[in-house]
Nucleic acid binder design. Structure first.
Length: 575
RNA sequence: CGGGGCGUAGCUCAGUUUGGCAGAGCGCUCGGUUUGGGUCCGAGAGGUCGUCGGUUCGAAUCCGGCCGCCCCGACCA
Protein backbone atom coordinates (compact mmCIF):
# COMPACT_ATOMS: atom_id res chain seq x y z
CA UNK A 1 0.00 0.00 0.00
CA UNK A 2 1.34 3.34 -0.99
CA UNK A 3 0.63 5.88 1.71
CA UNK A 4 0.18 8.57 -0.92
CA UNK A 5 -2.87 6.71 -2.23
CA UNK A 6 -4.40 5.53 1.02
CA UNK A 7 -7.95 6.60 1.74
CA UNK A 8 -8.38 8.98 4.65
CA UNK A 9 -5.82 10.78 6.69
CA UNK A 10 -4.16 10.66 10.05
CA UNK A 11 -5.04 13.40 12.49
CA UNK A 12 -2.73 15.47 14.59
CA UNK A 13 -5.42 15.89 17.21
CA UNK A 14 -8.13 13.48 18.26
CA UNK A 15 -11.76 14.57 18.45
CA UNK A 16 -12.36 16.18 21.82
CA UNK A 17 -15.02 13.66 22.80
CA UNK A 18 -12.73 10.65 22.44
CA UNK A 19 -11.83 9.79 25.99
CA UNK A 20 -10.31 6.34 25.93
CA UNK A 21 -6.78 6.01 24.56
CA UNK A 22 -7.86 3.33 22.10
CA UNK A 23 -10.61 5.59 20.81
CA UNK A 24 -8.21 8.51 20.31
CA UNK A 25 -5.44 6.51 18.68
CA UNK A 26 -7.71 4.51 16.39
CA UNK A 27 -9.28 7.70 15.09
CA UNK A 28 -6.03 9.62 14.83
CA UNK A 29 -4.34 6.72 13.10
CA UNK A 30 -7.11 6.52 10.47
CA UNK A 31 -8.26 3.06 11.57
CA UNK A 32 -11.87 3.99 12.25
CA UNK A 33 -14.30 6.85 11.69
CA UNK A 34 -17.51 7.45 13.61
CA UNK A 35 -20.83 7.49 11.78
CA UNK A 36 -22.96 8.03 14.87
CA UNK A 37 -23.01 7.04 18.52
CA UNK A 38 -21.74 3.49 18.73
CA UNK A 39 -21.48 3.15 14.95
CA UNK A 40 -18.13 3.11 13.16
CA UNK A 41 -16.63 2.69 9.73
CA UNK A 42 -13.48 0.59 9.58
CA UNK A 43 -11.09 2.41 7.33
CA UNK A 44 -8.61 0.38 5.24
CA UNK A 45 -5.99 0.19 8.03
CA UNK A 46 -8.58 -0.76 10.61
CA UNK A 47 -10.22 -3.35 8.42
CA UNK A 48 -6.85 -5.02 7.94
CA UNK A 49 -6.55 -5.41 11.71
CA UNK A 50 -10.08 -6.82 11.88
CA UNK A 51 -9.18 -9.36 9.21
CA UNK A 52 -6.08 -10.39 11.19
CA UNK A 53 -8.16 -10.93 14.31
CA UNK A 54 -10.74 -12.72 12.17
CA UNK A 55 -8.07 -15.14 10.90
CA UNK A 56 -6.88 -15.95 14.41
CA UNK A 57 -10.42 -16.59 15.58
CA UNK A 58 -11.17 -18.80 12.58
CA UNK A 59 -7.97 -20.79 13.06
CA UNK A 60 -8.69 -21.46 16.70
CA UNK A 61 -12.30 -22.36 16.07
CA UNK A 62 -11.36 -24.66 13.19
CA UNK A 63 -8.73 -26.29 15.40
CA UNK A 64 -11.41 -27.52 17.78
CA UNK A 65 -13.69 -28.79 15.07
CA UNK A 66 -15.60 -25.64 14.25
CA UNK A 67 -17.22 -25.10 10.88
CA UNK A 68 -17.42 -21.53 9.67
CA UNK A 69 -20.67 -20.38 8.13
CA UNK A 70 -22.54 -17.14 7.61
CA UNK A 71 -25.92 -16.34 9.04
CA UNK A 72 -28.40 -13.61 8.23
CA UNK A 73 -28.64 -10.33 10.10
CA UNK A 74 -32.28 -9.83 9.29
CA UNK A 75 -34.31 -12.24 11.40
CA UNK A 76 -38.00 -12.92 10.84
CA UNK A 77 -39.92 -11.91 13.94
CA UNK A 78 -41.42 -15.38 14.22
CA UNK A 79 -38.04 -16.86 15.15
CA UNK A 80 -37.67 -14.49 18.10
CA UNK A 81 -41.29 -14.91 19.06
CA UNK A 82 -40.74 -18.67 19.16
CA UNK A 83 -38.08 -18.38 21.85
CA UNK A 84 -40.03 -15.72 23.72
CA UNK A 85 -37.30 -13.14 23.31
CA UNK A 86 -39.14 -10.85 20.88
CA UNK A 87 -40.65 -9.03 23.85
CA UNK A 88 -38.11 -9.65 26.59
CA UNK A 89 -34.81 -8.57 25.04
CA UNK A 90 -35.10 -4.82 25.23
CA UNK A 91 -31.95 -4.07 23.22
CA UNK A 92 -33.46 -5.89 20.25
CA UNK A 93 -33.78 -3.59 17.24
CA UNK A 94 -36.87 -4.19 15.18
CA UNK A 95 -37.69 -3.14 11.66
CA UNK A 96 -40.93 -3.15 9.72
CA UNK A 97 -41.12 -3.88 6.03
CA UNK A 98 -43.78 -4.38 3.44
CA UNK A 99 -46.50 -3.17 5.74
CA UNK A 100 -47.01 -5.96 8.25
CA UNK A 101 -43.78 -7.93 8.05
CA UNK A 102 -41.48 -7.49 11.01
CA UNK A 103 -37.86 -8.39 11.53
CA UNK A 104 -35.31 -8.28 14.28
CA UNK A 105 -31.80 -7.13 13.48
CA UNK A 106 -29.33 -9.75 14.63
CA UNK A 107 -28.67 -9.02 18.29
CA UNK A 108 -27.32 -12.54 18.56
CA UNK A 109 -27.91 -15.75 16.63
CA UNK A 110 -29.37 -18.35 19.00
CA UNK A 111 -32.70 -18.04 17.24
CA UNK A 112 -31.22 -18.80 13.83
CA UNK A 113 -29.15 -21.66 15.23
CA UNK A 114 -31.94 -23.35 17.10
CA UNK A 115 -34.16 -23.06 14.04
CA UNK A 116 -31.43 -24.68 11.94
CA UNK A 117 -30.95 -27.36 14.58
CA UNK A 118 -34.65 -28.09 14.43
CA UNK A 119 -34.44 -28.66 10.68
CA UNK A 120 -31.02 -30.25 10.25
CA UNK A 121 -30.48 -32.35 13.38
CA UNK A 122 -32.54 -35.52 13.34
CA UNK A 123 -30.42 -38.19 14.98
CA UNK A 124 -27.83 -38.55 17.70
CA UNK A 125 -25.57 -39.37 14.75
CA UNK A 126 -25.82 -35.72 13.68
CA UNK A 127 -24.05 -34.55 16.83
CA UNK A 128 -21.88 -33.20 18.25
CA UNK A 129 -21.46 -30.20 15.96
CA UNK A 130 -19.73 -26.89 16.42
CA UNK A 131 -20.53 -24.10 14.02
CA UNK A 132 -19.54 -20.47 14.10
CA UNK A 133 -19.65 -17.30 12.13
CA UNK A 134 -18.23 -13.84 12.25
CA UNK A 135 -20.71 -11.13 11.45
CA UNK A 136 -22.51 -8.04 12.56
CA UNK A 137 -24.61 -7.71 15.68
CA UNK A 138 -27.05 -4.88 16.34
CA UNK A 139 -28.08 -3.92 19.82
CA UNK A 140 -29.96 -0.85 20.88
CA UNK A 141 -27.58 -0.03 23.69
CA UNK A 142 -29.09 2.66 25.86
CA UNK A 143 -25.66 4.15 26.04
CA UNK A 144 -22.89 3.45 23.57
CA UNK A 145 -19.54 4.41 25.00
CA UNK A 146 -15.77 4.29 25.00
CA UNK A 147 -15.22 4.34 21.24
CA UNK A 148 -15.20 0.70 20.17
CA UNK A 149 -15.86 -0.60 23.68
CA UNK A 150 -19.60 -0.58 23.55
CA UNK A 151 -21.25 -0.28 20.18
CA UNK A 152 -24.71 -0.38 18.70
CA UNK A 153 -23.42 -2.18 15.64
CA UNK A 154 -20.43 -4.45 16.09
CA UNK A 155 -18.62 -7.48 14.75
CA UNK A 156 -18.80 -10.69 16.71
CA UNK A 157 -17.45 -14.16 16.43
CA UNK A 158 -20.13 -16.38 17.83
CA UNK A 159 -19.83 -20.13 17.99
CA UNK A 160 -22.56 -22.60 18.85
CA UNK A 161 -22.40 -26.20 19.98
CA UNK A 162 -25.09 -28.80 19.54
CA UNK A 163 -24.82 -31.85 21.77
CA UNK A 164 -26.86 -34.87 22.73
CA UNK A 165 -26.56 -34.38 26.48
CA UNK A 166 -25.36 -32.18 29.24
CA UNK A 167 -22.42 -34.57 29.75
CA UNK A 168 -21.42 -34.20 26.12
CA UNK A 169 -21.64 -30.42 26.40
CA UNK A 170 -19.56 -30.48 29.59
CA UNK A 171 -17.00 -32.69 27.93
CA UNK A 172 -16.51 -30.34 24.99
CA UNK A 173 -16.64 -27.09 26.97
CA UNK A 174 -13.01 -27.14 28.23
CA UNK A 175 -11.65 -27.26 24.68
CA UNK A 176 -13.60 -24.07 23.90
CA UNK A 177 -12.24 -22.44 27.05
CA UNK A 178 -8.73 -23.42 25.98
CA UNK A 179 -9.31 -22.04 22.49
CA UNK A 180 -10.33 -18.76 24.10
CA UNK A 181 -7.16 -18.63 26.14
CA UNK A 182 -5.21 -19.26 22.92
CA UNK A 183 -7.06 -16.51 21.07
CA UNK A 184 -6.44 -13.83 23.67
CA UNK A 185 -2.84 -14.92 24.09
CA UNK A 186 -2.25 -14.69 20.34
CA UNK A 187 -3.82 -11.24 20.20
CA UNK A 188 -1.49 -9.97 22.89
CA UNK A 189 -4.27 -9.50 25.42
CA UNK A 190 -4.04 -12.40 27.88
CA UNK A 191 -7.48 -12.78 29.43
CA UNK A 192 -8.69 -14.55 32.47
CA UNK A 193 -11.74 -16.80 32.65
CA UNK A 194 -14.06 -16.01 35.51
CA UNK A 195 -17.40 -17.38 36.63
CA UNK A 196 -20.17 -15.11 35.54
CA UNK A 197 -23.85 -14.53 35.83
CA UNK A 198 -25.82 -16.00 32.92
CA UNK A 199 -27.99 -12.89 32.55
CA UNK A 200 -30.54 -12.66 29.77
CA UNK A 201 -28.92 -15.48 27.79
CA UNK A 202 -30.36 -17.99 30.20
CA UNK A 203 -28.84 -21.40 30.69
CA UNK A 204 -26.83 -23.11 33.36
CA UNK A 205 -23.48 -21.46 33.74
CA UNK A 206 -21.10 -19.20 31.96
CA UNK A 207 -17.54 -18.00 31.90
CA UNK A 208 -16.52 -14.49 31.09
CA UNK A 209 -13.08 -13.74 29.70
CA UNK A 210 -11.88 -10.48 31.13
CA UNK A 211 -8.86 -8.27 30.62
CA UNK A 212 -8.12 -6.20 33.72
CA UNK A 213 -8.43 -2.50 32.93
CA UNK A 214 -9.11 0.48 35.15
CA UNK A 215 -11.73 1.90 32.78
CA UNK A 216 -13.48 -1.44 32.30
CA UNK A 217 -17.21 -1.76 32.80
CA UNK A 218 -16.98 -5.08 34.60
CA UNK A 219 -16.09 -5.67 38.22
CA UNK A 220 -14.68 -9.01 39.12
CA UNK A 221 -13.36 -10.70 42.22
CA UNK A 222 -10.06 -12.53 42.30
CA UNK A 223 -8.44 -14.33 45.20
CA UNK A 224 -4.96 -13.08 46.05
CA UNK A 225 -3.98 -16.58 47.13
CA UNK A 226 -5.64 -19.12 44.88
CA UNK A 227 -7.13 -19.20 41.37
CA UNK A 228 -10.68 -18.30 42.35
CA UNK A 229 -12.13 -15.55 40.18
CA UNK A 230 -15.69 -14.51 39.46
CA UNK A 231 -17.77 -11.60 38.31
CA UNK A 232 -19.12 -9.68 41.34
CA UNK A 233 -22.58 -10.76 40.26
CA UNK A 234 -21.59 -14.40 40.71
CA UNK A 235 -18.81 -14.19 43.30
CA UNK A 236 -19.23 -16.14 46.52
CA UNK A 237 -17.30 -15.36 49.69
CA UNK A 238 -17.18 -16.29 53.37
CA UNK A 239 -19.26 -14.24 55.80
CA UNK A 240 -16.78 -14.01 58.64
CA UNK A 241 -18.24 -13.77 62.09
CA UNK A 242 -19.90 -16.03 64.65
CA UNK A 243 -23.11 -16.02 66.54
CA UNK A 244 -22.36 -14.81 70.06
CA UNK A 245 -22.32 -17.37 72.91
CA UNK A 246 -24.66 -15.24 74.93
CA UNK A 247 -27.63 -13.51 73.33
CA UNK A 248 -28.41 -10.12 74.83
CA UNK A 249 -31.96 -9.08 75.52
CA UNK A 250 -33.74 -7.00 72.94
CA UNK A 251 -33.66 -3.37 74.07
CA UNK A 252 -35.04 -0.19 72.54
CA UNK A 253 -32.86 2.92 72.50
CA UNK A 254 -33.33 6.49 71.34
CA UNK A 255 -31.28 7.22 68.21
CA UNK A 256 -32.18 10.66 66.86
CA UNK A 257 -31.08 11.54 63.32
CA UNK A 258 -29.52 8.16 62.70
CA UNK A 259 -30.75 7.33 59.23
CA UNK A 260 -27.67 5.66 57.86
CA UNK A 261 -25.74 2.63 59.07
CA UNK A 262 -22.67 4.79 59.64
CA UNK A 263 -24.71 7.20 61.80
CA UNK A 264 -26.21 4.43 63.88
CA UNK A 265 -22.94 2.57 64.36
CA UNK A 266 -21.06 5.64 65.52
CA UNK A 267 -23.95 6.88 67.69
CA UNK A 268 -24.33 3.55 69.47
CA UNK A 269 -20.60 2.91 69.46
CA UNK A 270 -20.47 -0.38 67.57
CA UNK A 271 -18.91 -1.58 64.31
CA UNK A 272 -21.10 -1.49 61.23
CA UNK A 273 -20.82 -5.29 61.21
CA UNK A 274 -22.88 -5.27 64.41
CA UNK A 275 -25.81 -3.69 62.65
CA UNK A 276 -28.26 -4.95 60.05
CA UNK A 277 -28.97 -2.97 56.91
CA UNK A 278 -32.36 -2.93 55.21
CA UNK A 279 -32.84 -2.00 51.53
CA UNK A 280 -36.12 -1.81 49.66
CA UNK A 281 -37.05 -2.70 46.12
CA UNK A 282 -40.05 -3.07 43.92
CA UNK A 283 -39.71 -6.41 42.15
CA UNK A 284 -41.48 -7.26 38.91
CA UNK A 285 -41.51 -10.94 37.91
CA UNK A 286 -40.37 -11.86 34.41
CA UNK A 287 -43.02 -11.15 31.79
CA UNK A 288 -45.27 -9.23 34.18
CA UNK A 289 -46.17 -5.57 34.33
CA UNK A 290 -44.93 -3.47 37.20
CA UNK A 291 -48.43 -3.38 38.70
CA UNK A 292 -48.13 -7.13 39.28
CA UNK A 293 -44.88 -6.72 41.18
CA UNK A 294 -44.37 -6.69 44.90
CA UNK A 295 -42.42 -4.96 47.62
CA UNK A 296 -39.16 -6.65 48.62
CA UNK A 297 -37.31 -6.10 51.87
CA UNK A 298 -33.60 -6.93 51.54
CA UNK A 299 -31.52 -7.53 54.63
CA UNK A 300 -27.73 -7.71 54.92
CA UNK A 301 -25.22 -7.24 57.71
CA UNK A 302 -24.37 -3.56 58.05
CA UNK A 303 -20.84 -3.80 56.65
CA UNK A 304 -22.06 -5.38 53.40
CA UNK A 305 -23.96 -4.18 50.34
CA UNK A 306 -26.76 -5.86 48.44
CA UNK A 307 -25.87 -6.96 44.93
CA UNK A 308 -29.00 -6.47 42.87
CA UNK A 309 -28.21 -9.13 40.30
CA UNK A 310 -27.75 -11.71 43.05
CA UNK A 311 -31.00 -10.54 44.57
CA UNK A 312 -32.88 -10.91 41.27
CA UNK A 313 -31.45 -14.38 40.80
CA UNK A 314 -32.54 -15.34 44.31
CA UNK A 315 -36.04 -14.17 43.44
CA UNK A 316 -36.05 -16.24 40.27
CA UNK A 317 -35.55 -13.48 37.71
CA UNK A 318 -37.51 -10.40 36.79
CA UNK A 319 -36.66 -6.75 37.27
CA UNK A 320 -35.83 -4.65 40.30
CA UNK A 321 -36.04 -0.95 41.03
CA UNK A 322 -35.69 0.99 44.27
CA UNK A 323 -38.99 1.20 46.15
CA UNK A 324 -40.65 4.56 46.63
CA UNK A 325 -41.23 5.97 50.11
CA UNK A 326 -44.94 5.28 49.74
CA UNK A 327 -44.32 1.64 48.86
CA UNK A 328 -41.99 1.31 51.85
CA UNK A 329 -44.53 2.81 54.23
CA UNK A 330 -47.29 0.67 52.76
CA UNK A 331 -45.26 -2.34 53.87
CA UNK A 332 -45.36 -1.10 57.45
CA UNK A 333 -41.70 -0.14 57.32
CA UNK A 334 -40.22 3.12 58.58
CA UNK A 335 -37.49 4.34 56.18
CA UNK A 336 -34.24 5.00 57.99
CA UNK A 337 -35.35 3.00 61.00
CA UNK A 338 -36.32 -0.22 59.28
CA UNK A 339 -35.93 -3.79 60.40
CA UNK A 340 -37.76 -7.08 60.16
CA UNK A 341 -38.53 -6.99 63.87
CA UNK A 342 -42.26 -6.74 64.36
CA UNK A 343 -43.11 -6.94 60.66
CA UNK A 344 -45.83 -9.06 59.17
CA UNK A 345 -43.43 -11.26 57.19
CA UNK A 346 -44.67 -13.21 54.18
CA UNK A 347 -44.01 -16.95 54.21
CA UNK A 348 -43.30 -17.00 50.48
CA UNK A 349 -43.82 -15.00 47.30
CA UNK A 350 -47.44 -16.12 46.97
CA UNK A 351 -48.41 -15.01 50.47
CA UNK A 352 -49.39 -11.56 51.69
CA UNK A 353 -47.13 -9.60 54.01
CA UNK A 354 -43.65 -8.20 53.59
CA UNK A 355 -41.27 -10.44 51.67
CA UNK A 356 -37.99 -10.31 53.59
CA UNK A 357 -35.02 -11.78 51.79
CA UNK A 358 -31.94 -11.95 53.97
CA UNK A 359 -28.31 -12.54 53.21
CA UNK A 360 -26.60 -15.40 55.06
CA UNK A 361 -24.47 -12.77 56.80
CA UNK A 362 -27.27 -12.11 59.31
CA UNK A 363 -26.22 -15.36 60.93
CA UNK A 364 -22.54 -14.41 60.95
CA UNK A 365 -22.83 -12.30 64.05
CA UNK A 366 -25.52 -11.35 66.50
CA UNK A 367 -26.74 -8.93 69.12
CA UNK A 368 -27.30 -6.58 66.24
CA UNK A 369 -28.43 -3.00 66.32
CA UNK A 370 -31.48 -2.79 64.05
CA UNK A 371 -34.20 -0.27 63.31
CA UNK A 372 -37.28 -0.26 65.52
CA UNK A 373 -39.66 0.65 62.67
CA UNK A 374 -40.30 3.83 64.60
CA UNK A 375 -38.64 7.13 63.75
CA UNK A 376 -35.80 7.90 66.15
CA UNK A 377 -35.49 4.45 67.72
CA UNK A 378 -33.37 1.35 67.25
CA UNK A 379 -33.26 -2.00 68.98
CA UNK A 380 -30.08 -3.47 70.41
CA UNK A 381 -29.45 -7.15 70.98
CA UNK A 382 -31.46 -8.26 67.97
CA UNK A 383 -30.87 -11.85 66.91
CA UNK A 384 -32.18 -14.06 64.15
CA UNK A 385 -34.33 -16.11 64.47
CA UNK A 386 -35.20 -15.24 68.05
CA UNK A 387 -36.42 -11.70 67.38
CA UNK A 388 -37.62 -11.72 63.80
CA UNK A 389 -38.44 -14.01 60.94
CA UNK A 390 -37.58 -13.81 57.28
CA UNK A 391 -39.12 -15.13 54.07
CA UNK A 392 -35.99 -16.42 52.38
CA UNK A 393 -32.28 -16.81 53.10
CA UNK A 394 -29.95 -16.29 50.15
CA UNK A 395 -26.55 -15.09 48.96
CA UNK A 396 -27.36 -11.50 48.06
CA UNK A 397 -24.35 -9.60 49.41
CA UNK A 398 -21.72 -8.17 47.12
CA UNK A 399 -18.23 -9.58 47.32
CA UNK A 400 -15.56 -6.94 47.77
CA UNK A 401 -11.89 -6.39 48.51
CA UNK A 402 -10.77 -7.82 51.84
CA UNK A 403 -13.41 -10.50 52.17
CA UNK A 404 -12.51 -14.13 52.62
CA UNK A 405 -12.20 -16.52 49.69
CA UNK A 406 -14.67 -19.40 49.84
CA UNK A 407 -12.25 -21.69 48.07
CA UNK A 408 -9.03 -21.27 50.06
CA UNK A 409 -9.68 -18.88 52.92
CA UNK A 410 -7.37 -16.23 51.47
CA UNK A 411 -8.29 -12.62 50.83
CA UNK A 412 -10.17 -11.60 47.73
CA UNK A 413 -9.75 -8.41 45.75
CA UNK A 414 -12.11 -6.52 43.47
CA UNK A 415 -10.75 -5.41 40.09
CA UNK A 416 -12.20 -3.59 37.11
CA UNK A 417 -11.99 -5.29 33.75
CA UNK A 418 -13.20 -5.27 30.19
CA UNK A 419 -15.26 -8.25 29.13
CA UNK A 420 -13.58 -9.64 26.05
CA UNK A 421 -15.48 -12.87 25.58
CA UNK A 422 -18.22 -14.97 27.07
CA UNK A 423 -18.98 -18.70 27.02
CA UNK A 424 -22.44 -19.97 27.92
CA UNK A 425 -23.69 -23.43 28.59
CA UNK A 426 -27.19 -22.81 27.36
CA UNK A 427 -28.48 -26.33 27.93
CA UNK A 428 -32.00 -26.80 26.59
CA UNK A 429 -33.19 -23.21 27.06
CA UNK A 430 -33.67 -22.71 23.30
CA UNK A 431 -34.31 -26.25 22.13
CA UNK A 432 -37.20 -26.48 24.58
CA UNK A 433 -38.74 -23.31 23.19
CA UNK A 434 -38.97 -24.65 19.66
CA UNK A 435 -38.96 -28.35 20.56
CA UNK A 436 -35.68 -29.02 18.78
CA UNK A 437 -35.19 -32.72 19.37
CA UNK A 438 -33.25 -35.65 17.94
CA UNK A 439 -33.82 -39.38 18.13
CA UNK A 440 -31.49 -41.18 20.51
CA UNK A 441 -30.15 -44.74 20.14
CA UNK A 442 -33.45 -46.10 21.33
CA UNK A 443 -35.45 -44.03 18.88
CA UNK A 444 -36.72 -41.72 21.62
CA UNK A 445 -36.89 -37.96 21.02
CA UNK A 446 -34.51 -35.95 23.22
CA UNK A 447 -33.82 -32.24 23.51
CA UNK A 448 -30.66 -30.85 21.96
CA UNK A 449 -28.11 -29.27 24.33
CA UNK A 450 -26.68 -25.98 23.19
CA UNK A 451 -23.76 -23.74 24.05
CA UNK A 452 -22.86 -20.32 22.72
CA UNK A 453 -19.50 -18.60 22.74
CA UNK A 454 -18.88 -15.00 21.73
CA UNK A 455 -16.00 -12.58 21.17
CA UNK A 456 -16.43 -9.02 19.94
CA UNK A 457 -13.81 -8.25 17.31
CA UNK A 458 -14.05 -4.46 17.47
CA UNK A 459 -13.88 -4.48 21.22
CA UNK A 460 -10.91 -6.84 21.10
CA UNK A 461 -9.18 -4.48 18.68
CA UNK A 462 -9.74 -1.63 21.14
CA UNK A 463 -8.46 -3.73 24.05
CA UNK A 464 -5.32 -4.55 22.08
CA UNK A 465 -4.68 -0.81 21.62
CA UNK A 466 -5.39 -0.16 25.29
CA UNK A 467 -2.70 -2.69 26.16
CA UNK A 468 -0.21 -1.85 23.40
CA UNK A 469 0.55 1.83 22.98
CA UNK A 470 2.88 4.56 24.17
CA UNK A 471 2.80 8.36 24.14
CA UNK A 472 3.37 8.44 20.39
CA UNK A 473 0.85 5.91 19.20
CA UNK A 474 -0.14 2.31 18.79
CA UNK A 475 2.31 -0.59 19.04
CA UNK A 476 0.55 -3.44 17.24
CA UNK A 477 1.49 -6.97 18.19
CA UNK A 478 2.86 -8.76 15.11
CA UNK A 479 -0.11 -11.11 15.10
CA UNK A 480 -2.70 -8.43 14.35
CA UNK A 481 -0.67 -5.61 12.77
CA UNK A 482 -2.25 -4.14 9.63
CA UNK A 483 1.11 -4.42 7.86
CA UNK A 484 4.40 -5.98 8.90
CA UNK A 485 6.65 -3.28 7.47
CA UNK A 486 6.37 0.49 7.38
CA UNK A 487 8.76 1.56 4.66
CA UNK A 488 9.61 5.22 4.07
CA UNK A 489 12.07 7.38 2.28
CA UNK A 490 13.24 10.67 3.64
CA UNK A 491 15.39 13.38 2.27
CA UNK A 492 16.21 14.35 -1.26
CA UNK A 493 17.83 12.47 -4.06
CA UNK A 494 16.95 10.04 -6.78
CA UNK A 495 18.96 7.27 -5.18
CA UNK A 496 16.93 7.44 -2.00
CA UNK A 497 13.68 7.34 -3.89
CA UNK A 498 14.75 4.57 -6.22
CA UNK A 499 16.14 2.46 -3.41
CA UNK A 500 12.91 2.79 -1.48
CA UNK A 501 10.84 1.97 -4.57
CA UNK A 502 12.82 -1.17 -5.21
CA UNK A 503 12.68 -2.21 -1.54
CA UNK A 504 8.91 -1.84 -1.71
CA UNK A 505 8.88 -4.42 -4.50
CA UNK A 506 11.46 -6.66 -2.83
CA UNK A 507 9.66 -6.78 0.48
CA UNK A 508 6.32 -7.49 -1.12
CA UNK A 509 7.81 -10.26 -3.24
CA UNK A 510 9.27 -11.71 -0.06
CA UNK A 511 5.71 -11.97 1.23
CA UNK A 512 5.46 -8.96 3.50
CA UNK A 513 2.55 -6.59 3.75
CA UNK A 514 4.15 -3.19 3.36
CA UNK A 515 2.89 0.30 3.98
CA UNK A 516 5.16 2.48 1.87
CA UNK A 517 5.24 6.12 2.89
CA UNK A 518 6.14 7.57 -0.50
CA UNK A 519 4.71 10.99 0.29
CA UNK A 520 6.58 14.21 -0.27
CA UNK A 521 6.52 15.11 3.39
CA UNK A 522 9.08 16.20 5.93
CA UNK A 523 10.83 13.51 7.97
CA UNK A 524 9.10 14.60 11.14
CA UNK A 525 5.66 14.11 9.60
CA UNK A 526 6.55 10.63 8.38
CA UNK A 527 8.17 9.48 11.61
CA UNK A 528 5.26 10.71 13.65
CA UNK A 529 2.76 8.96 11.41
CA UNK A 530 4.79 5.76 11.63
CA UNK A 531 4.77 5.90 15.42
CA UNK A 532 1.05 6.66 15.45
CA UNK A 533 0.05 3.85 13.08
CA UNK A 534 2.26 1.43 14.97
CA UNK A 535 3.43 -1.10 12.38
CA UNK A 536 6.00 -3.50 13.96
CA UNK A 537 8.94 -2.86 11.63
CA UNK A 538 9.97 0.55 10.37
CA UNK A 539 12.41 0.71 7.48
CA UNK A 540 13.82 4.14 6.68
CA UNK A 541 15.70 4.87 3.49
CA UNK A 542 17.65 8.11 3.71
CA UNK A 543 20.80 9.65 2.35
CA UNK A 544 22.54 9.30 5.67
CA UNK A 545 21.98 5.56 6.03
CA UNK A 546 22.64 4.85 2.36
CA UNK A 547 26.02 6.59 2.70
CA UNK A 548 26.77 4.20 5.52
CA UNK A 549 25.83 1.24 3.37
CA UNK A 550 22.30 0.36 4.34
CA UNK A 551 18.90 1.36 5.61
CA UNK A 552 17.71 2.03 9.10
CA UNK A 553 15.50 -0.60 10.74
CA UNK A 554 13.59 -0.05 13.95
CA UNK A 555 11.13 -2.12 15.90
CA UNK A 556 8.14 -0.03 16.96
CA UNK A 557 8.27 -1.67 20.36
CA UNK A 558 11.95 -0.94 20.94
CA UNK A 559 13.94 2.27 21.11
CA UNK A 560 17.09 1.26 19.23
CA UNK A 561 17.68 1.63 15.49
CA UNK A 562 19.88 -0.59 13.40
CA UNK A 563 21.78 0.08 10.21
CA UNK A 564 21.11 -2.95 8.05
CA UNK A 565 22.68 -3.71 4.65
CA UNK A 566 19.96 -3.95 2.03
CA UNK A 567 20.93 -7.51 1.27
CA UNK A 568 20.12 -8.51 4.84
CA UNK A 569 16.87 -6.59 5.18
CA UNK A 570 14.45 -9.39 4.37
CA UNK A 571 16.17 -11.74 6.81
CA UNK A 572 16.12 -9.05 9.48
CA UNK A 573 12.39 -8.34 9.34
CA UNK A 574 11.55 -12.01 9.00
CA UNK A 575 12.42 -12.48 12.67
C1' C B 1 -34.38 6.59 31.48
C1' G B 2 -32.08 10.19 35.64
C1' G B 3 -27.72 13.79 36.44
C1' G B 4 -23.90 16.86 34.08
C1' G B 5 -21.46 18.99 29.77
C1' C B 6 -21.21 20.30 24.68
C1' G B 7 -22.87 21.67 19.41
C1' U B 8 -19.10 28.03 15.51
C1' A B 9 -14.34 25.94 8.93
C1' G B 10 -12.18 18.94 7.76
C1' C B 11 -9.83 18.82 13.26
C1' U B 12 -8.79 21.56 18.04
C1' C B 13 -11.04 25.76 19.89
C1' A B 14 -11.92 31.47 20.83
C1' G B 15 -16.11 34.77 20.32
C1' U B 16 -21.88 34.08 23.96
C1' U B 17 -21.10 37.01 30.41
C1' U B 18 -22.46 42.85 28.34
C1' G B 19 -26.82 41.49 21.11
C1' G B 20 -23.73 45.46 16.46
C1' C B 21 -19.07 43.21 9.72
C1' A B 22 -17.68 35.33 11.23
C1' G B 23 -12.29 34.54 14.05
C1' A B 24 -7.32 31.80 15.37
C1' G B 25 -4.09 27.46 15.14
C1' C B 26 -3.64 22.89 12.59
C1' G B 27 -5.14 20.63 8.00
C1' C B 28 -6.24 21.76 2.57
C1' U B 29 -4.80 24.62 -2.49
C1' C B 30 -0.90 27.62 -5.08
C1' G B 31 4.27 29.76 -5.20
C1' G B 32 8.92 29.71 -2.88
C1' U B 33 12.05 27.52 1.06
C1' U B 34 13.68 23.34 3.98
C1' U B 35 15.08 17.89 3.90
C1' G B 36 16.74 12.38 9.75
C1' G B 37 11.55 13.79 14.32
C1' G B 38 4.87 17.39 13.01
C1' U B 39 10.47 23.36 8.58
C1' C B 40 9.85 28.54 7.38
C1' C B 41 7.71 32.74 4.28
C1' G B 42 3.82 34.55 1.21
C1' A B 43 -0.97 34.19 -1.28
C1' G B 44 -5.76 31.58 -1.23
C1' A B 45 -10.18 28.29 -0.74
C1' G B 46 -13.39 26.93 3.04
C1' G B 47 -18.83 28.30 7.81
C1' U B 48 -27.31 28.45 6.87
C1' C B 49 -22.65 29.52 13.96
C1' G B 50 -26.97 21.73 15.01
C1' U B 51 -32.26 22.79 13.90
C1' C B 52 -37.12 25.15 14.32
C1' G B 53 -39.59 29.07 16.46
C1' G B 54 -39.76 33.59 19.67
C1' U B 55 -37.86 38.55 21.55
C1' U B 56 -35.32 42.74 18.99
C1' C B 57 -34.04 48.04 14.43
C1' G B 58 -30.43 44.12 14.66
C1' A B 59 -29.26 37.27 17.37
C1' A B 60 -23.51 32.75 17.02
C1' U B 61 -24.78 35.73 21.52
C1' C B 62 -31.16 36.40 25.01
C1' C B 63 -35.81 32.87 25.58
C1' G B 64 -38.42 28.14 24.30
C1' G B 65 -39.04 23.43 21.63
C1' C B 66 -36.61 19.60 18.98
C1' C B 67 -32.21 16.89 17.17
C1' G B 68 -27.28 15.19 17.81
C1' C B 69 -22.70 14.07 20.56
C1' C B 70 -19.72 13.08 25.15
C1' C B 71 -19.20 11.84 30.48
C1' C B 72 -21.41 9.72 35.25
C1' G B 73 -25.41 6.58 36.88
C1' A B 74 -29.30 2.88 35.64
C1' C B 75 -29.04 -0.99 31.95
C1' C B 76 -25.81 -4.46 29.36
C1' A B 77 -26.18 -11.49 25.69
Amino acid sequence: MRFSRSFGRTLREAPADAEMISHQLLIRGNFVRPAGAGIYTFMPFGYRVIRKIWAILAEEMDAIGGQEMWMPNLHPASLWQATGRWDTVDVLMKVKAGGSREYALSATHEEIIVDLALREIESYRDMPRMIYHISKKFRDEPRARGGLMRLREFIMKDAYTLDTSEEALDAYYPSMIQAYYNIFERCGTPARAINADVGAMGGKSSHEFVVPHEQGEDMFIACTNCDYAANVEAAVFVREGEKPDKLNELGKILTPDCKTIADVASFVGVLTSQTLKAVFYWWTPLGEGEENGRFIFGLVRGDLEVNEVKLINALGGGALRPATDDEIKAGGVTPGYASAVGLDVAADLTEPGVFVIADTSIEAGGNFVVGANEAGYHYTGANYPRDFTISQMADIAQADTGRQCAQCGGRIEAQRAIEAGHCFKLGTRYSTAVNATYLDEKGKPQLIFMGSYGIGLDRLMAIIVEKHHDDYGIIWPDSVAPFQVHLMHIGKGDEVRQTADSLYETLQQAGFEVLYDDRKASPGVKFNDADLIGIPWRVTVGGRSLAQGGVEVKRRSQPDRHLVPISELVAMVSN
